[in-house]
Design a protein around this nucleic acid. Structure first.
Length: 783
DNA sequence: TATTGCTGTCATCAT
DNA sequence: AAATGATGACAGCAA
């Protein structure tokens, strides 16, 4: 008794309440036996985290130790889930809020008392009644695992299943699995709406207070009978299996479990009146309401038909789709850890989800679901809260009420719950897969919430992006304009269209011009040095001589002229052969390498060579060096002087005995000629460089505009996602109710998401503290 | 007539 | 060291 009392004092009552709510049956005998299943620690890891909260301790003892570690059947999980679903459905049916409202179990004496008084009965009931009978009856189904679970999964049949669940056989099986421990806890955590069933409670309270064992037996019977009676659920009296189809409502089982729990608790140790430790149970207004209404709900209110569930499912799926959750892995892990045997995906998912429902509420399904789950979980202990990391802090102000215990909305670890919930769970979106299945425990650990982190990061990113955009003064319109602006934006104003030497035009023209110029040049040279044949090839325009075409000339000049080209040209060789350069005029003509027209000049020169006026004209057209060369009577053309390779040039000089002045002039001509070409090339390069730079700037601006557009799109999408998350958060939070049926003040509470998919409602003050611990605890648990 | 662009030339540096 | 290329600066020329 002392041991039990100790646990109870620690919050067993609270825990039991939760269990009763969930419909989980606690085997007192096993509990008393204090047998610790190895699996528990293995799976759950060191109980430190759990032990921290009395609630957990109680729970642990009940589930893992007191009861066969595996006593908790998968069915229970499923039943839990079903119950939750039913509750949700009820909620959707506009069931009065009090019933749905969450119950906060405090370690504080007052709170505990109230909670204990309310819940304790149910616990006893569950433990005693359901355990054995149900176990026996249900065992076969349980082994089936999936099958049993499924049957339980049915909303209608849930109640029966609940009662039936937790059969000893099932426990054994669960022991085999080893995962059941977790499931038990999950179940424990999960609170069923049945808890609120007032009638059941009253009955329970009225019930005798026999020894725990007696209580159990009674509870079992009662459970069977009571279930049948109250719920009118078709339950196999002996097996305790519920016939889903026949069972109309959830509440029956729940009520039973509550009653039994109450009885058991009372029998175990009279709290309230008798025991000073346990003050008389205080029923909150909500509770009272719930009690009154509960019967109607459980009995009177028809459980939502499968369709509603479908609706819920649909909603959930919608949410899922929206959120694009990818937590399946997490759920799977949790499921695997908890439920070693997964009959089939369907069964597992459904069953697990239910089982986990106790402590956790499924955000995944719908906001409604969440709400109810939350209510169930409110009974979390502060200690647990410590474990929880502050996962998610909504926009609400961080004004925390220290005294208020942490409200855990965490979904129980049950694999099913996790699977369903987790998958759908908001956290799933942001949360990475849970580190380990053990985390699933309600109070569990708490991994740093990636969700919150993600949100924060996303927010920060968005902010930064927005800031960036703002800094850049960029908006989409501007972005779109950027590209347009790009063309006009070049500071260089080297617009190709405008610039005479536009890259394309200049290039092509230059290249062509280059070739042409070279050709021309050779021709010129030919002209200068050869009298004809080659020149004849070019159409001569005498007028051309005077008809200097600056543009063309310019183009030619702009072209790169590689002297080597000239040198290599066979034409030049031929030209070289013509030594007509003696003629001053010819030289003068030859001196115009740049002029394309020179060919015309040639022809003109030949024909008009004897016309002085034209010679003067030609002299005018010739360059200074040409004139100088003519004046100095240089025997060869400037072209040769300039373009011949050094060796040939030297050879040429050597052939001709030139005076010093002539040599100097020739060298100057060569130097200036080369420098001229170099200057041309240089200028062209400059121009090309500028053009390339301009193009680069254009491209960069275009890229920038594109990137900015993309950025804006991303920002928009991020904003939308944030809004969705916020709306979901708000929806969930607003639906939460404390024991008084009042919504939690956003300034004082916030929802926290844990890695295992559970959602807790925590005082804001605790958030910071808890956030620091999670890693530690996880490590501990893993150990 | 002043401005502007083109071109040639010079000076200089680098190769 | 000479030859040559590159380039800035300057000047002349033409529009």
């Amino acid at each position: 008794m002392l041991y039990l009392k100790k646990y109870f004092t620690e919050g067993l009552i609270q825990f039991t309440i939760l269990l009763s709510l969930i419909g989980v049956r606690v085997d007192l005998d096993t509990y008393l036996s204090n047998q610790l299943p190895p699996l528990r620690e293995i799976i759950l890891g060191p109980s430190s985290a759990y032990t921290q909260t009395q609630f957990h301790n109680l729970r642990n003892t009940l589930d893992g130790y007191g009861i066969h570690p595996k006593s908790v059947d998968l069915d229970q999980f499923f039943t839990t889930r079903r119950l939750l679903n039913q509750v949700r459905q009820l909620d959707r049916l506009s069931v009065p809020s009090p019933e749905l409202s969450t119950w906060l179990v405090h370690c504080d004496p007052e709170t505990v008392v109230s909670a204990a008084s309310q819940s304790s009965p149910s616990i006893t009931l569950d433990n005693g009644a359901s355990l054995e009978d149900v176990n026996n009856s249900e065992t076969p189904t349980m082994r089936g695992g999936g099958g049993a679970l499924e049957s339980t999964y049915n909303p209608s049949g849930e109640d029966s299943t609940l009662g039936a669940v937790a059969p000893e056989d099932s426990q054994e099986q669960s022991n085999r699995d080893g995962n059941d421990d977790l499931t038990k806890e999950d179940i424990d955590l999960g609170a069923g709406r049945e808890v609120f069933n007032y009638s059941s409670r009253q009955k329970e309270s009225e019930a005798e207070k026999p020894s725990p064992e007696e209580e159990r037996a009674e509870a079992q019977e009662r459970w069977r009978n009571g279930v049948n009676l109250q719920e009118a659920q078709p339950v196999d009296g002996e097996t305790g299996e519920s016939i889903p189809e026949q069972i109309p409502g959830l509440g029956s089982q729940t009520s039973l479990s509550l009653q039994e729990c109450l009885r058991l608790l009372e029998a175990t140790f009279p709290f309230g009146e008798e025991s000073p430790e346990f003050p008389a149970p205080v029923v909150t207004a909500e509770l009272a309401v719930a009690n009154e209404e509960a019967p109607s709900t459980s009995r009177g209110l028809p459980l939502p038909p499968p369709l509603p569930q479908l609706d819920l499912e649909q909603q959930w799926q919608d949410i899922m789709a929206i959120m694009e959750l990818q937590e399946m892995e997490v759920n799977n892990t949790s499921e695997n850890s908890f439920l070693s045997t997964t009959s089939n995906s369907t069964n597992t998912s459904g069953s697990t989800s239910e089982s986990g429902s106790v402590g956790s509420f499924g955000l995944t399904r719908s906001s409604t679901l969440i709400h109810q789950d939350v209510s169930l979980h409110q009974a979390s202990l502060p200690s647990c809260s410590q474990d929880f990391p502050t996962l998610f802090n909504p926009e609400m102000d961080a004004t925390s009420t220290p005294r208020t215990p942490l409200l855990t909305m965490s979904s129980s670890n049950s694999s099913n719950v996790n699977s369903t919930f987790g998958a759908t769970n908001l956290t799933g979106l942001f949360l990475p897969p849970p580190l380990n299945s053990t985390n699933n425990i309600t109070c569990t650990p708490v991994l740093p919430d990636p969700f919150s982190t993600l949100l924060e990061e996303s927010m920060l990113d968005e902010i930064s992006l927005l800031d960036l955009a703002m800094e850049e003064g960029f908006n989409q319109a501007q972005a779109s304009q950027l590209e347009d602006e790009l063309d006009s934006d070049s500071g260089l104003s080297l617009d190709s269209s405008h610039s005479p030497a536009s890259p394309s035009s200049s290039e092509t023209s230059c290249s062509s011009a280059a070739s042409s110029s070279s050709t021309n040049f050779s021709e010129e040279g030919a002209v200068g040095y050869s009298t004809d044949s080659e020149s004849a090839a070019v159409e001569p325009e005498e007028g051309a001589v005077g008809g200097y075409q600056p543009e063309f000339n310019k183009l030619c000049r702009m072209s790169y002229q590689d002297p080597s080209q000239f040198h290599g040209l066979p034409q030049l060789d031929n030209v070289n052969h013509n030594h007509t350069y003696n003629l001053p005029l010819s030289s003068s003509f030859d001196e115009h390498p740049e002029l394309p027209i020179p060919t015309g000049k040639k022809m003109g020169r030949e024909k008009q060579s004897k016309l002085k006026p034209q010679q003067d004209f030609l002299d005018k057209q010739s360059s200074r060096d040409e004139r100088r060369a003519r004046a100095m009577k240089i025997p060869f053309s400037n072209e040769k002087i300039i373009n011949l390779p050094v060796e040939e040039f030297n050879e040429l000089l050597s052939k001709h005995h030139l005076s010093e002045a002539q040599l100097a002039l020739v060298r100057d001509i060569r130097r200036r000629g080369k420098n001229k070409m170099a200057a041309q090339n240089c200028r062209k390069r400059k121009l090309d460089t500028i053009i390339n730079l301009e193009q680069g700037v254009h491209d960069l601006r275009r890229d920038k505009a594109r990137l900015l557009k993309e950025k804006m799109e991303f920002i928009r999408s991020i904003r939308q996602m944030k809004q969705k998350v916020q709306s979901l958060y708000q929806e969930v939070f607003t639906q939460l109710r404390n024991e008084e049926g009042r919504p939690y003040p956003p300034s004082e509470y916030s929802l926290q998401y844990s890695a295992d998919g559970s959602v807790l409602i925590m005082p804001r003050t605790m958030t910071d503290q808890q956030t620091r611990k999670p890693e530690k605890k996880q490590k501990d648990k893993k150990k």
